[in-house]
Write a protein that binds this DNA or RNA. Structure first.
Lengths: 279, 279
DNA sequence: AAAAACCCTGACCTTACCTTAGAGTTTTGG
DNA sequence: CCAAAACTCTAAGGTAAGGTCAGGGTTTTT
């Protein structure tokens, strides 16, 4: 026999793994050196063992844990290898889908930060085109304007839980808002029972998912919920002064929320908006 | 002030995280409870802190580590958030690409296992169509047939290192083979200086990358390098008996290699092949 | 006032290794 | 042949983001 034995260092170099790794594989029993000196405990590997190490590395590439690898190697059952591979494939597919979702979320986060950086001054009024959006809406018995922010938080939390419980995709995009009916806005009654989360355009259809159509909106920007009533008043006045026709519900949209600071309050950036009709 | 304090359990439930997690966040300093009883060490959270926790969870969704999150929260710098996000995006993109590679590898592994299960008997001769393949070839001065398998292993290892050093994509698909020139095969000279690895169809162009054209091949199957010479002889005889015209180089292809068993040798499955021309 | 529910700290567990320390072994050079 | 260099061993402790458990204190409920 050509028993060309290698010491652990050679074996490691030969296979481009670390010595530590080989020792670990020995310990967990997936690659025992073909001979171990009982006196010195030195490990000696045969060149033939490279094959097994290759297989281990290959299986690791496939995303298996050492435990899974051990099981397969012990059983030496081809059936099992195949079924393991098939379930791995499914798993990887899911991971890819997850990462793609994350990717989208990051992209939106970047947009969001950019928007924050370029945010107009508080109180600024604009008339702008906003393209269509999809929202997941929840109705509540409480009127948000009768309570403080903590109630809003709680309900928003309910909403998210709601989504999760229904097995709907997690919404990473945490932008949200509330809706007030047009009639109430016209009277400045400040009454809202609807809260929503923006969802992706490809979000599955659902009774709570609604499309907000694109339109020209009259908007006013502000940076805290506190002054909402006052700003809503200004927005309404502005529309009246310009003889704009309000053609839909009022939306209070949370554009960005950054809680990077140690302050106790959220640093928010809001856009109050009503759709307009120009005949 | 509405200092509606929550104990850790409430806070955890409210935000759907575990108590342990909140304690961890306290320890690493990304979310300190707004009040801690100095006697009992009980942690009390304010509802306003939910905002910060939201942000933390959001950043985690984006794939940031707690360390990264802490940095951002400490600096509170929007610029930095943005650049972090941008680099995250790149990272996620790479991860997705990696996973896709892995996915392909798994698919091929499944095919490979299936092929192994359905492998014909050793010695079986077929004439079959094999569609085009892409290979990364390396030339060596040594003739594989003058040495034993360990030399082949070593050179294969060199080849892989070669690939990595050149910054080419890692080849997970570990199927490989050797090439013998047609003339040598016709004389059964058993001389091969070229070893190759199969690569993906979309592998970047490179001077060492060669396309093996599709063709009808005369093939013989076997399960060890040992008998290669003998099997090659049989293949040649077969072609002669049938008056087949050999129109290209001889390939010894390693179809599958399973080292699931504790034996010292590789359990291989090979296909020797020569392309034929039917006018 | 007792029981139930809750909270604390500290320690150890997970994966797939890496690092370091201190001691022993083999190889190399002179 | 002997010293130095290079190598190897074990054992312990670290990583990230928590989970789990034990033993003991605190709050809330009954």
């Amino acid at each position: 026999m050509d028993d060309k034995m290698m010491k652990i260092g050679e074996m490691a170099q030969f296979n481009r793994v670390s010595i530590t790794t080989l020792r670990l594989y020995d310990k967990v029993g997936i690659l025992k050196p073909c001979y171990t000196d009982t006196k010195t405990n030195y490990r000696y590997y045969s060149i033939h063992q490279k094959a097994r190490l290759d297989m281990i590395q290959y299986m690791k590439e496939l995303g298996m844990s050492l435990g899974e690898i051990r099981e397969i190697l012990e059983k030496g059952d081809i059936q099992m290898i195949e079924s393991t591979l098939i379930s791995k494939k499914k798993q990887v597919k899911e991971e890819i889908a997850q990462l793609k979702l994350r990717m989208g979320a990051i992209t939106r986060a970047i947009d969001s930060v950019e928007r924050f950086r370029k945010a107009p001054d508080c109180g600024m009024i604009t008339v702008e085109y906003i393209s269509h959006r999809k929202v997941y809406v929840m109705h509540t018995d409480t009127n948000f304007y009768e309570h403080d922010i903590s109630v809003y938080e709680e309900i928003l939390e309910d909403l998210k839980e709601n989504l999760i419980n229904q097995g709907l995709p997690q919404v990473y995009y945490c932008n949200a808002g509330t809706i007030m009916r047009k009639e109430d806005f016209l009277d400045l009654k400040m009454e809202s029972h609807e809260i929503f989360l923006f969802v992706d355009d490809d979000f599955p259809a659902h009774k709570s998912v609604r499309r907000i159509d694109s339109a020209m909106y009259a908007c006013i920007y502000l940076d805290s919920f506190e002054g909402e009533r006052e700003y809503a008043r200004r927005l309404l006045n502005y529309c009246r002064e310009h003889w704009y026709v309000i053609c839909g519900d009022y939306i209070c949209e949370v554009l960005t929320e950054f809680n990077v600071f140690d302050s106790e309050k959220r640093s928010m950036f809001l856009r109050l908006q009503v759709p307009l009709k120009f005949r």
